[in-house]
């Protein structure tokens, strides 16, 4: 798979660090992560629950709420810094430049407002449209996301839609003002398996039409394999491996990624036991001094207990493991 030319990247994140202030002192939820997303590219972000995937998404459009806050990092969109924007400027950017889709379509829509009201207010918040023009546009959007008979359905309330249909509405809302980047935070986790593939296909097709990039946050490696161009694997607030999806799937370098790949069931392959990674991700309150994965790693060395590996380039990707730096046991 050819990698999109990364210059200039649509989104460039450098050294993003997010901290949670607690009574017992600050916790590092995201620890100096850097990545970029090219125009039209789909970057998958995978990791276990609590690895910091969702916080990364929220940090980009500054939706973190106290006690969680970004303490460091540069975020640039099309070369212009967007961290440190005023509240007003950030509001204008949300939805207009960066759209966001949340995990649960059942709770993402205001239950007391019709689909029309929610679409029209979103359209008019960003585009100079008259109410009737916005309504026409809203119907068009619903048709695009595959809502049947949108002229009638648009005046329904969210409870009249099924989960899959609601997620389509959510996608329509996120795409309403034609953003250049969609941050999709587990967009299919709450849906029926049968609907998941449809929703992902839809999202992918609509973004491809518009030339929009997607940051796809999920813990479903299957979705990543089918959808993403590149993938970043997160573990305990850090990116442990990043690279083109084919490379990550076929020859993962980081022991954690290797463990993840071994844990994917497949129908065709010989039915041996799935490998599993023993132990659990460390709590943020008890991060080890060295590599956060070392306690669970089968290849851990003495070095791993005391020092943290940084991302080391490898082929077209990079992995944060001392094995790649040529260290030996």
């Amino acid at each position: 798979m050819l990698q999109a030319v990364p210059a200039p990247p649509l989104l460039d994140v450098k050294d993003l660090t997010v901290q949670i202030d607690t009574r017992r002192g600050p916790l590092l939820a995201i620890d100096h992560i850097s990545f970029h997303i090219a125009r039209g590219e789909i970057l998958g972000i995978v990791g276990e629950s609590g690895a910091g995937k969702s916080l990364t998404g929220a940090a980009i459009i500054n939706l973190l709420t106290p006690p969680i806050r970004r303490i460091q990092g540069e975020i640039s969109l099309q070369g212009a810094r967007i961290d440190g924007l005023s509240i007003q400027a950030m509001r204008e950017l949300r939805g207009k430049k960066i759209g966001m889709i949340f995990q649960d379509p059942l709770t993402s829509l205001d239950p007391l407002a019709t689909i029309a009201q929610q679409l029209i207010e979103t359209l008019r918040a960003h585009l100079p449209l008259s109410p009737s023009a916005a309504r026409a546009r809203a119907i068009g959007l619903l048709r695009e996301v595959g809502i049947p008979a949108p002229e009638q359905r648009i005046d329904a309330y969210p409870h009249a839609f099924s989960g899959g249909m609601r997620q389509r509405v959510v996608i329509a809302l996120a795409l309403a003002a034609e953003p250049e980047l969609i941050i999709a935070d587990e967009p299919t986790t709450a849906l029926d398996v049968s609907v998941q593939a449809q929703i992902i296909e839809l999202l992918k097709a609509l973004c491809a039409q518009r030339g929009a990039s997607i940051m796809l946050i999920t813990h479903d490696m299957g979705v990543i394999a089918e959808t993403a161009d590149r993938v970043a694997v997160m573990y305990a607030g850090r990116i442990v491996e990043i690279g083109p999806v084919a490379q990550i799937i076929q020859s993962p370098r980081h022991p954690y990624t290797q463990g993840l790949m071994g844990a994917i069931p497949s129908l065709g392959a010989d039915r041996t036991r799935l490998t599993q990674i023993s132990g659990a991700m460390p709590r943020l309150t008890a991060l080890p001094e060295g590599c956060a994965f070392a306690p669970r790693c089968t290849k851990a060395m003495a070095l791993c207990q005391t020092q943290r590996p940084s991302l080391t380039p490898h082929e077209q990707g990079a992995a944060a493991c001392f094995l790649l730096e040529g260290a030996t046991v």
């Binding site: 205001d110 007391l112 407002a113």
Partner: peptide
């Protein structure tokens, strides 16, 4: 604290619209 308020923020609605059209009504 609900998701739909977060989503309303993510859609770029003004604070006034969020507080009065969505939050207060609910």
């Amino acid at each position: 604290r609900t998701d739909f308020i977060r989503f309303a923020r993510a859609r770029g609605l003004s604070e006034r619209a969020i507080n009065f059209n969505h939050a207060l009504k609910n």
